[in-house]
Amino acid sequence: MFSNILVIGAGTMGAGVASQFALKGFNVTILVRSEEKVICLKPELEKLVKRSLKRMQLKESQSDVLDKIDIVKELANEASYDFVFEAISENINQKKQIIQDYTGFITENTIWATNTSSLSVTDMAAGYKYPENFIGIHFFNPVASMELVEIIPSMLTSTSVVDKCWDFCTLLQKKPVRVKDSPGFIVNRLLIPMINEAVEILSSQVASAEEIDSAMKLGAHHPLGPLALADLIGNDVCLSIMEALYTATSDSKYRPSYLLRKMVSAKKLGRKTGIGFYSY
């Protein structure tokens, strides 16, 4: 299906997706920004692959899977890729710049997939050399265990590219859903405003964080309360998605909570900083 895959972005999502590609036998190059990132990414990939091999009960050895992953700071001049998966931070200007920076490593057949949870795929596709080959593929964290993938064609994406990406995600043992290019798509258009409202309830002192989360776990059968989930996602990510929804729609129901803004300003981002609505 794909002989040479490039993953741009080596954060939680990039590493998670790259490990899943390699587990299915694909050769993957991960582009990172520094030697320090190379050093810290290797043990993270080892942990991801080890867990997945155990969970999926696969016979491949850990070393064989890891041998399919190449971590580089720069791409070779002669390199070209038939599938590019971009998983940098949720910033449309940065994503557009990445597209321009790596145009020299694609061909007219290269599919470029952006992992976005809220941004306009059509807007990004318009800046790609072959817009019919541009698509949104939104994996969820943690990639290994979350089954859902949102496949988001732009207004310019060809049907054949949608079909190929659908088959690719199915091969990865994911369950894709097709979504029109719209603010927040399905999951985040429902989920993030709920989290934002939970922050508003907390801000209004209607209930404590623990009480809010317990109410949703016990009353709605949510496995994780909305504020604990915000800490897991990252409060900065939740804020950026709310801002994207608000900017795209101008609808007041998507206005970010003032408390959420303050949490982000104070670097209380959740698990990744050790403190958010809870301490870790």
Rank of each mutant, 00 (worst) to 15 (best):
K54E: 12
R55Q: 10
M56D: 01
K47E: 12
K59R: 13
V49N: 05
L45R: 13
L53H: 01
K68V: 08
P43W: 05
V38I: 15
K54M: 04
K68R: 15
V49H: 12
K68E: 03
S52R: 09
K54W: 01
L53Y: 00
Q62S: 11
S63H: 11
D70I: 08
L41S: 14
M56K: 11
P43N: 05
K47A: 13
I69F: 02
K50R: 15
E44M: 12
K50L: 07
S63R: 08
C40M: 13
K54Y: 01
I69Q: 10
L41P: 09
K68S: 11
V38G: 02
L45H: 14
V49C: 07
R51A: 14
D70G: 01
L45Q: 14
K42M: 06
C40H: 14
E44L: 13
Q62N: 12
K42V: 02
I69K: 05
L45G: 12
K68H: 09
R55E: 11
K68I: 07
Q57H: 11
L48K: 11
L66V: 09
L48R: 09
V65G: 13
I39W: 00
S61P: 04
E44Q: 15
K54H: 06
Q57T: 02
L66W: 03
D64P: 13
L53M: 03
R51Y: 06
R51K: 15
L41E: 08
Q62T: 11
V65T: 08
L58Q: 08
L45E: 12
V49G: 05
R55H: 03
L41V: 11
L48Q: 09
K54S: 11
S63M: 07
S61V: 02
S63G: 03
L48T: 01
P43E: 02
L58P: 03
D64A: 15
I71H: 03
K42N: 10
S61E: 06
Q62C: 10
Q57V: 07
D64V: 09
L41D: 10
S63K: 15
P43Y: 02
I69T: 11
R55P: 00
I39R: 00
P43R: 02
V49T: 04
V49F: 01
D67V: 08
R55A: 07
K47F: 08
I71T: 04
V49W: 03
K42C: 04
S63T: 14
S52Q: 06
K47D: 11
K47V: 07
K50A: 12
V65F: 06
I71F: 00
V38L: 11
D64N: 15
L48N: 10
L45A: 12
L41Q: 12
K42D: 04
L58E: 03
V49M: 08
C40S: 15
I39P: 00
K50D: 09
I69L: 05
K54G: 01
I69P: 06
Q62F: 01
I69R: 09
L66M: 06
K54T: 09
V38T: 14
V38S: 12
S52D: 11
D70A: 05
I39V: 09
D70L: 09
C40P: 04
